[in-house]
């Protein structure tokens, strides 16, 4: 029964999208709180390099993408410490160099005919059963990591030094966050593509803010809103024959606009207790 269901490419696509959104939303809350949107962009743009390396070395693509993303994230943090360049300049340089390097590397590999568009904007309809499994594993690991890191990460987000004085292992938690972002990027690459992954993280989280009165509410709501966007985007892309990844992002954006058009009185207010 289950196998029969998974034979349908639409069902596989929906499952993959829902799983990715369920993790990307809560993680996106942290990306928004910590002002890491551009950071996420930079790291996700480097995912193509991971693909190229994976193909070259004949290794699992998801694994390679995760590794390269972690490496780039750590490199970024180290470079930012030196403070010779402003953070956004540094991120801009790395984001676009990594993307271009990835594209150049992929086209260089002989005998490999890859659909570049699929990597850039996602190819959720091509998700196979094997992909589904690796997305499930990556997503589950990321979700577990997020739950374990939740409290220290939140303390760190509010005030890093205060957290450190109070005994939070700052370096370890930050490394954990890098790993988390990398895992989600690897999982999301097939759904929305490297160019749009950050959108799947920050747009649902930004929409969720309007309804949330606690960090946890915002994270869970972001997951739900992301899943709704995946469903709506998939339907829309089928209906209007548009590319799925961008359609999912458009759905998320429409949701964001809708949420902000809602009159304030329909939204439960903070502090009104």
């Amino acid at each position: 029964m289950m196998e029969g269901l998974l034979d349908d490419f639409l069902v596989r696509a929906l499952l993959a999208g829902l799983m990715v959104a369920a993790v990307a939303g809560p993680l996106g809350a942290f990306v928004v709180w910590r002002r890491m949107a551009y950071f996420g962009d930079t790291v996700s743009h480097s995912a193509l390099l991971g693909v190229a390396l994976g193909v070259l070395l004949g290794l699992n693509l998801n694994l390679m993408v995760t590794l390269v993303c972690v490496a780039i994230a750590i490199l970024l943090v180290l470079l930012q410490r030196r403070q010779e360049l402003a953070a956004d300049t540094l991120l801009g340089i790395l984001a676009h160099s990594a993307l271009s390097l990835g594209i150049v590397a992929i086209t260089f590999i002989e005998g490999l005919r890859v659909d570049l568009m699929a990597y850039l904007f996602g190819d959720i309809l091509a998700v196979g059963t094997g992909d589904l499994l690796s997305i499930a594993i990556g997503g589950a690991v990321a979700l577990l990591l997020l739950i374990v890191l939740w409290r220290p990460l939140l303390a760190l987000t509010v005030h890093e030094e205060l957290a450190q004085v109070e005994g939070v292992p700052v370096l370890l938690v930050r490394l954990g966050l890098m790993l988390l972002i990398a895992l989600v990027i690897a999982a999301a690459m097939q759904v929305v593509g490297v160019l749009l992954i950050t959108a799947l993280m920050i747009i649902p989280a930004a929409s969720a803010r309007r309804f949330a009165t606690t960090p946890e509410q915002m994270a869970i709501l972001a997951g739900i809103i992301g899943m709704l966007a995946v469903g709506a985007g998939l339907w829309g892309s089928f209906q209007y024959d548009t590319p799925t990844g961008p359609t999912i992002v458009v759905a998320a954006m429409l949701g964001f606009i809708l949420v902000h058009l809602l009159p304030g009185r329909l939204i439960p207010h903070f502090g009104g207790r």
């Binding site: 928004v32 303390a155 509010v158 005994g167 803010r209």
Partner: peptide
């Protein structure tokens, strides 16, 4: 950050 919904109670019990 205003984007982080956090009450005083929650802030006090972060750690």
């Amino acid at each position: 950050e205003p984007v982080l919904p956090l009450s005083v109670q929650r802030f006090l019990t972060l750690r």
